[in-house]
Design a protein around this nucleic acid. Structure first.
Length: 254
DNA sequence: ATGGCTTTATGCTAAAGA
């Protein structure tokens, strides 16, 4: 089974890219983030043979999971704060598999409530995943975590030192989540530096490969045992009018 | 580089992204 995640940076602006990539790679599941609008072009995906579930928000955020077979929606918001209106979480059950799609908050600038919101959101995520572990529900969580886990996950750690994506508090939240017993799928087979999922639009970041690895898949133990591969597909980042993120593909034994 | 792009919106400048 092939499962992908892709921050499309507006589904409206990236619809043609998404449909083309689905035709090229044919994943069973695609998790998307940053839909950036209330409207979702569901017809284009159903015509391509996919079921559609999405959590929209005006202008910002928004997540979707498209899948070959229809899933059961378990949660369409992250528990722990009823006043949180931001569309960043979608949890489904698909063919006996629990799948979670997240768009974690960016958190910049770090001296504002945006950073405290990021940390509290990650703490709520920790508690949800801890609950699933205690219930012995195995899961795959994928998406845009907006966390650079380690120095090897960015081109120049000095540039990112005080950024919300690399601040120690964000990386501590990442490690706490991993310490629930989860595995960073990309790092199972690939230990090297220079592998990124995001390149800024500015300053020639893409042609110089000055990127960061912030889009991830984490696997609970039983699913980690089914791991076949995890790759970053840089192809769509080179297309005309590309998203600043590129897809990550996970394959597990069916 | 408190910003070199890119996107959205009861728009034509502001806010957010990372």
């Amino acid at each position: 089974m092939k499962i992908a995640t892709w921050n499309v940076n507006s589904i409206k602006a990236r619809l043609d890219h998404a449909i083309k990539w689905l035709g090229d790679e044919k994943p069973d599941i695609l998790m998307m983030q940053e839909l950036k609008g209330l409207e979702f072009p569901a017809d284009a995906f159903t015509s391509a043979g996919y079921q559609v579930n999405f959590v929209p928000q005006k202008t910002y955020n928004g997540v979707a999971i498209i899948s070959c077979q229809p899933p059961a929606v378990i949660l369409d918001r992250l528990p722990g704060d009823d006043s949180d209106e931001q569309a960043r979480y979608l949890e489904i059950e698909y063919q006996g598999l629990r799948l979670i799609n997240i768009y974690a908050p960016n958190g910049n600038p770090v001296d504002t409530d945006k950073f405290t919101y990021k940390l509290s959101w990650l703490n709520r995520l920790y508690h949800r995943l801890s609950q699933l572990r205690q219930q012995q529900i195995d899961f795959i969580i994928g998406g845009d975590f907006n966390i650079i886990p380690e120095e090897r996950d960015c081109h120049d750690p000095r540039v990112w030192a005080n950024d919300a994506l690399f601040r120690i508090e964000s990386r501590q939240a990442w490690r706490a989540i991993l310490n629930l017993g989860l595995t960073d799928a990309f790092r199972i087979q690939n230990k090297g530096a220079g592998h990124y999922t995001f390149w800024d639009y500015q300053a020639g970041a893409w042609p110089q490969n000055k990127g960061i690895r912030i889009d991830h898949f984490l696997l609970s133990p039983v699913i980690a045992d089914r791991f076949i591969g995890c790759t970053i597909d840089k192809t769509p980042r080179g297309w005309e009018k590309a998203s600043d993120h590129t897809p990550v593909m996970l394959e597990i034994a069916a």
